[in-house]
Amino acid sequence: MGKVLILGGGFAGVEAAIYLRKHELDVTLVSDRDYFYIYPISIWIPTGEKTREDVSVPLDQLAFAHGFKLIVDPVTSFEAKEKKVILESGRVLDDYEYIVVALGQDKIQMKGMEHTLSICGKPEEATALYERLEALVLKDSGKITMGFGGNPKDSSAVRGGPAFEVLFNVHNFLKKKGIRDNFELTFFAPMEKPGIKMGEKAVEMMDKMFGMTNIKKKIGSKITSFEADGINFEDGTKIESDLTMFISAGTGHSILAESGLPLSEAGFVVTNAYNEIEGFDGIYAIGDSASLMGPDWRAKQGHVAEVMAKNVAYNLFNKMQKIDSKHSYEEHLNILCVMDTGNGAAFVYRDNKGGKMIPMPIVGHWMKKGWGWYCRNSKLGKIPRIPGM
Rank of each mutant, 00 (worst) to 15 (best):
G344C: 02
P152Y: 01
F347M: 03
Y374F: 14
M110Y: 13
C375D: 14
L103M: 10
V307H: 12
L103F: 07
E204I: 00
G282F: 10
G294P: 11
S378C: 12
E97M: 13
V363H: 00
G354N: 06
I383T: 04
G142T: 06
E134L: 04
M308P: 08
D229Q: 11
G67L: 09
M146C: 09
G142M: 09
V137H: 12
V72K: 07
I108C: 12
E278W: 13
H115V: 05
Q105G: 13
G302K: 07
Y314A: 07
Y98I: 04
P359W: 02
F188Q: 05
V75I: 02
S328E: 12
I196A: 04
P190L: 09
K310P: 05
I358T: 10
G211R: 11
F268L: 14
G355Q: 05
D54Q: 12
I119M: 07
L29N: 11
M212R: 14
L292H: 05
V166G: 10
Y130H: 15
L25F: 14
E124I: 09
L174D: 03
G67K: 11
S291L: 04
F347L: 11
G364H: 00
E97S: 15
F317K: 10
M146L: 15
Y130E: 10
G354A: 09
R159T: 01
N275H: 15
F148S: 00
V270T: 13
F173P: 04
L103W: 11
I6Q: 06
T341Y: 07
K216Y: 01
A202L: 05
E278D: 14
P190N: 03
I38S: 11
S289Q: 05
N232K: 15
T244W: 05
L87R: 12
I18S: 10
E125I: 03
P359S: 05
V101Y: 04
G388P: 02
E184V: 14
S156G: 07
H253V: 02
N151H: 04
L256S: 04
V85L: 10
N214H: 14
E204T: 02
F317W: 08
V75R: 01
G150P: 01
N275Q: 15
F36P: 06
L256W: 05
W44S: 08
S89K: 14
G355H: 08
G282Y: 11
L62W: 08
A228G: 07
D154T: 00
L129F: 08
S248H: 10
Y96V: 01
I108D: 07
E330G: 03
G252C: 06
D26P: 15
A273F: 11
E234N: 08
E331V: 01
L185M: 13
S264G: 11
Q321S: 04
G90C: 06
R52F: 09
A249K: 04
M212P: 07
E258Q: 13
F188Y: 14
Y98P: 10
I223K: 01
A249D: 01
Y374R: 10
G104E: 00
L62C: 11
P46S: 07
I43V: 15
S42D: 11
L167Y: 03
P46A: 06
T244Y: 10
P384F: 09
F246A: 07
V307N: 08
G211P: 06
V170P: 13
G13L: 07
G150Y: 03
